[in-house]
């Protein structure tokens, strides 16, 4: 596939991820949408790396994965703590701090 196809795919996946964050109620699904966005960025990075013939883009993908792993660990821990308190993962119910 040409570079354009990869970058286009990356854009589509990213927008789907954004829509997931905007639309979903379930905190866990919102979190998955964030992973979706990170992954879309990874596709673009790897595609551009191949385009330039260097490996720096692939190295960046590694760092993105590291951040995703760290984020998943902390984020899920927060969800467990919230779930113990509120017994729900619905973000519209978790509004104690809103006003």
């Amino acid at each position: 596939m040409p570079l354009v196809a990869y970058i286009g795919l990356s854009a589509i996946l990213f927008v789907i991820g954004v829509m997931g964050v905007l639309l979903k109620r379930n905190a866990l699904t919102i979190f998955m949408s964030i992973e979706l966005m990170l992954n879309a960025v990874n596709v673009a990075l790897a595609a551009f790396a191949r385009h330039h013939g260097g490996l720096d883009g692939q190295i960046f993908v590694f760092f993105v994965m590291t951040v995703a792993a760290a984020e998943a660990a902390v984020g899920l821990a927060i969800f467990i703590a919230i779930f113990r308190l509120k017994k729900t993962t619905d973000v519209t119910e978790i509004n104690l701090m809103r006003w």
Binding site: L13, I16, G17, G20, L28, T29
Partner: peptide
């Protein structure tokens, strides 16, 4: 793989059940 990626991404945000989304 691209088609599978787009389809599965849409299903992630379409499904109600978090396990199926995952």
């Amino acid at each position: 793989a691209s088609i599978a990626a787009i389809f599965s991404a849409l299903m992630v945000i379409w499904q109600r059940n978090a396990v199926i989304s995952a």
